[in-house]
Design a protein around this nucleic acid. Structure first.
Lengths: 126, 126
DNA sequence: ATCGTTTATCGTAGATATACGATAATAAAG
DNA sequence: CTTTATTATCGTATATCTACGATAAACGAT
């Protein structure tokens, strides 16, 4: 149903994620850590969102932008995928950057390590 | 409001968690991994549940059972805490074992490492 | 058997999540 | 300026989550 058209414009993949700062966790209070962990965990708490993060984390840096390809890869309506992307942005997993008619999404650089550090500090640290 | 009474009975801390098998992840399909990751993430997606897992993970093995102490530690009604404990059991973070009038909760042994392995495989592995 | 303690479950109300189609907004192409 | 492609947002329906008080169930103590 969805006609695949190739964009005439040469897309510039400018999706450079602001990296997270791991040292920041050391300065966070335990309460803040737990709040943040719950938030990031909510991002991963739906299979479709796990799949999205995987798609983006999987890609080599030069082809990180998938825009509407994410919609095609998932068995969901475009509006539903858009909502999941919004949740992932809000919880801090993704960054989106408008690039012409499409939007370039990528994971926040280092977010996986950030998440795992947060788990360790929140669940057993201090 | 809540009268603290000491149990007359000498409580046996028999809460020995069946450890998770890390090798099992290697045999799981990617789809199964993502499903499982979403499930475990849902467990951590609420600050109260993060706090509960922390409380239990924190404890040395000989005092792992906190039963109603969890209720006292959280600013929630007993029934609400019980519901959170149920979610944590269902998503695979905790085990509960009935021990007389109270219930002995502990984290599933090795669940944190299991979770982190799952993250790696689900988000970047294969 | 009865009482008190502990925990789970029920019923319920309000909030949030999930999914969809329809529509609006943005920008490239013609 | 109009059309087309892409994405976000709106409106809506249904489901799940979260919290609480009330009640039930289990068990030790008396």
């Amino acid at each position: 149903m969805r006609a695949k058209k190739i964009l005439m414009k040469e897309v510039k993949f400018t999706c450079k994620a602001n990296p997270v700062d791991l040292n920041e966790i050391g300065k966070m209070s335990i309460e803040e850590c737990k709040r943040r962990l719950a938030e990031l965990s909510k991002g991963l708490s739906h299979p479709a969102r796990v799949e999205i993060v995987r798609m983006l984390e999987d890609k080599p840096p030069e082809e990180r932008c998938v825009c509407g390809d994410i919609v095609n890869a998932l068995p969901l309506a475009q509006s539903s995928v858009s909502q999941h992307l919004k949740v992932l942005k809000e919880t801090g997993w993704l960054q989106g950057e408008i690039d012409g008619p499409c939007v370039c999404y990528c994971t926040v650089e280092g977010i996986m390590e950030y998440y795992m550090t947060l788990i360790k500090k929140s669940l057993q640290g201090e």
